[in-house]
């Protein structure tokens, strides 16, 4: 009852309600809808606490049983508690929390993001090969967009057309057309999945198998 039937009834009721309120602007429905949104935020806040507890548990167990690489877990736990304590005792606008945020978290995360630049270079080098006609088209498009989107390439002209215009054309038309095609399929797939859950055909999210 509590593992299957009740969640399915809940999914159906809430799903149908969300569809109805989308089309009916009655204040009572909107009030209920706002209540659902409020509860969603409350649940999310609570689950963040659950997530943090799991994180602590996960790393604490690694340290306790001296699992391979447990030193990283010690660093993770120490960093977590250091930030929390710094925020509690000195606030978040000034003091150690702000210092750690600016001097550790900001450069650390920015470094992670900057790795993309390196990975994109190797990925482009590896995949842009003129193996056949379609791969050659991909290669040419890639090169045109890469050059046409930076100042040095914007002024280059091929056959009377500037590289910037060519790059814009590729992004505006073939790129947008392909994305629209994928978006339409994705939209229908999303609607189908949502309807299957509301109707109760799809239950694997509840752990149900064949």
């Amino acid at each position: 009852m509590f593992r299957r039937t009740l969640p399915m009834i809940l999914a159906f009721t809430v799903g149908v309600f969300m569809i109805v309120q989308f089309f009916v602007p009655h204040p009572q429905l909107q009030m209920l809808y706002n209540m659902v949104l409020d509860w969603k935020q409350v649940v999310f806040g609570c689950v963040l606490i659950v997530g943090t507890m799991t994180l602590i548990r996960h790393h604490a167990l690694r340290v306790r049983f001296r699992k391979q690489g447990y030193g990283y877990s010690i660093i993770a736990l120490a960093s977590l508690f250091a930030m929390v304590l710094a925020a509690i005792f000195w606030g978040i606008e000034t003091g150690p929390y702000s210092w750690l945020f600016t001097n550790v978290q900001v450069p650390g995360q920015a470094t992670m993001f900057s790795l993309l630049g390196f990975f994109i270079a190797t990925a482009a080098y590896r995949s842009f090969r003129a193996r056949n006609v379609t791969a050659t088209l991909l290669l040419l498009s890639g090169v045109i967009v890469m050059l046409g989107r930076v100042p040095a390439g914007e002024n280059m002209v091929i056959g009377g057309v500037s590289l910037a215009d060519l790059a814009t054309w590729i992004l505006d038309y073939p790129n947008t057309a392909a994305k629209r095609g994928i978006l339409i399929g994705v939209g229908l797939g999303m609607t189908s999945t949502a309807l299957k859950i509301i109707i109760g055909i799809e239950q694997s999210y509840l752990g149900k198998g064949e």
């Binding site: 994928i182 399929g185 994705v186 229908l188 797939g189 189908s192 055909i201 694997s204 064949e210």
Partner: peptide, 29 residues
């Protein structure tokens, strides 16, 4: 790619009722 992801659980489970939903998607498309 894209909607193949949504079709994946149907594909792996081969549940007839779920296969029907894929057909509906094709017609809607």
């Amino acid at each position: 790619i894209g909607e193949e992801l949504y079709a994946a659980s149907v594909y792996l489970s081969r549940e007839p009722m779920l296969l029907g939903s894929l057909k509906a998607q094709d017609f809607a498309k």
